[in-house]
Each structure stands twice: as structure tokens, then as C-alpha cells.
């Protein structure tokens, strides 16, 4: 009998390690779901500290996604144009956008503090004109944007690369200025990539912890976002911590669903 594809040889070691790897990814989340105080969830969710943290997280993640869209799409355009640049500036630009992706977020938080803190390079000037950024809700937004915007930039850059850029030439021949081309042709043509990037960016911003706690601290209602509230509650009130964690898990699953056709291979 002829099989349609060669039968795989059983590899017990590989199989065992693979299963352990999978368990490492899945079991903790399963544990979270199993240990959740389901009976009290309704009551936990309406607690002021939970609602406050949730509201603050949704607000700041939305603002930082908005800021990332405003600044990140033009940055993605710049990055896609950089293929025509000389090698060194092109690599430097790409590296600069990649660094926040690989950098420990705490380092980002310290760096932001050194730039914008009271005695920071820019911060000392801002302080003189009465602007203080660290440990405010604005600082949360900046910290989230710092870590999350690169996700959006790379998603949009990918969309720009696959879209037919010659439509922009057609638009120019019809009298469209570069800004009109960007607004009326480039952005709509790359809309799916922009949407996917915005969802990724939002998810990353929502989960931000290290840069936020370093640069913005943990003031209830001002800078104490869901991840920070969840971490702090772990010491005093594990049930609340679990409830907060469940909210974050639910949002992540929502993101996964939103992106399933674009980013998960084999389901398209």
C-alpha cells in the first residue's frame, strides 16, 4: 500500500520533550483558570480597586495605541523608504525600532526617567516650565508607547511592502500631493496591516509592567494599571490578583481571536 506521504518515524525523545514544552505553556494558564474563585468573581470584579485598575488600563492602552498610530505609521513609511538609503543609516533606523522589542522593559523605564525625570536631560527644562511627566498617567502612556509602538511599526511596514506601491504613482499623476497620497491611498491600502498592528500594540500596552512601574510608579487611579494591581494584590489578596489576571487573560484571548486569520499560519 502506498501512503500519500512518508510515514514519520517515531521519535520518543522528541515527542516527550515537545509535550513537556507544551505543558509548560499551557499548564500555568490552566492552573489560573482552575484556581480562580469563580463563585466570587462577580463580586471581585466590581471592587473599586479592580474597576479603577481596569479603567486606567483601558484608557492608557487606548491612548498609547492612538499615539503609536499617529507616530508609528509615518515611522513605518520612513522605514519602508529606507531600502533606498545607504546601508549604515538603514540598519541604524531598523535597530533603533527593534531595541524596545528586545530590551527588558525596566531598562526602558529607567531610560525614560533619565530623559524626562525631574533631573533628566529634557526633564529639567520641562520642570522649569511647570511640566512634570514621571509618576503621572501621561508617564504610563509614554512607557506603554515606548514598548508597544515597534509592534505596530513592523506590522505596518510589512503591509506597505506587500501593497502595490505603484498605486501611489497613479495618484501622483492625478495631481495628489505626497500628503494626499498618504491619506487617500497608502493608509487605506494598508488598513488591514494597520489594524493588526494596532491590536498587537494595544495588547502589548495593556500588559506593560516593567517600564510603567519604573517610570510611572504605582499610584491607585493614576498609574496603577491592571498588571501592577494584580502583582501587588498577590501579596495581600490572591483572589483579587487572580481575578485581575483573568481579565488580562481574557483580553489576550480576544486579541488572539482578532488576529487569527492574519497571524496564525494554517488557519487562513
Amino acid at each position: 500500500m502506498q501512503a500519500s506521504r512518508p510515514r514519520e518515524r517515531r521519535q520518543p525523545v522528541i515527542l516527550a520533550l515537545g509535550v513537556i514544552g507544551l505543558a509548560l505553556l499551557v499548564l500555568p494558564l490552566l492552573g489560573l483558570i482552575l484556581r480562580a474563585p469563580w463563585g466570587q468573581l462577580g463580586e471581585l470584579f466590581v471592587r473599586q480597586e479592580v474597576l479603577q485598575a481596569l479603567g486606567l488600563s483601558l484608557l492608557t492602552a487606548t491612548l498609547s495605541t492612538g499615539l503609536s498610530l499617529i507616530l508609528g505609521i509615518p515611522l513605518a513609511v520612513l522605514l519602508s523608504h529606507s531600502v533606498h538609503w545607504k546601508v549604515l543609516p538603514r540598519r541604524l533606523l531598523r535597530a533603533a525600532i527593534t531595541i524596545p522589542l528586545v530590551l527588558p522593559p525596566v531598562v526602558g523605564g529607567i531610560a525614560l526617567l533619565l530623559l524626562l525625570g525631574r533631573r533628566g536631560i529634557l526633564g529639567q527644562w520641562l520642570t522649569q516650565v511647570g511640566i512634570t511627566i514621571p509618576f503621572t498617567t501621561g508617564a504610563v502612556v509614554l512607557a506603554q508607547t515606548f514598548v508597544a509602538m515597534p509592534f505596530l511599526v513592523f506590522a505596518v511596514e510589512g503591509a506597505l511592502r506587500s501593497a502595490d506601491r505603484r498605486s501611489e504613482l497613479a495618484a501622483a499623476s492625478l495631481g495628489a500631493s505626497p500628503w494626499q497620497i498618504f491619506r487617500l491611498v497608502t493608509v487605506p491600502l494598508t488598513a488591514p496591516g494597520i489594524a493588526a498592528g494596532a491590536v498587537l500594540c494595544f495588547a502589548r500596552a495593556l500588559g506593560e509592567f516593567g517600564a510603567t512601574i519604573t517610570f510611572a510608579g504605582s499610584f491607585p487611579g493614576v498609574t496603577r494599571t491592571l498588571p501592577i494591581a494584580s502583582y501587588l494584590a498577590m501579596n495581600s489578596d490572591p483572589d483579587t490578583a487572580i481575578a485581575l489576571a483573568l481579565v488580562l487573560l481574557a483580553v489576550s484571548l480576544g486579541v488572539l481571536l482578532a488576529l487569527r486569520d492574519r497571524w496564525l499560519p494554517g488557519t487562513a
Binding site: 502595490d164 505603484r166 498605486s167 504613482l169 497613479a170 499623476s173 492625478l174 500631493s177
Partner: peptide, 15 residues
């Protein structure tokens, strides 16, 4: 965009 030359492309490039 300031030349006022109409162009028709081989693959048309409709938006």
C-alpha cells in the same frame, strides 16, 4: 503631481 500629464498604466492601477 504638478505636471498635469495624464498616465494610463499597463495594469491600469485603479485604486
Amino acid at each position: 503631481d504638478q505636471r498635469r500629464i495624464g498616465v494610463m498604466f499597463q495594469d491600469l492601477l485603479l485604486f
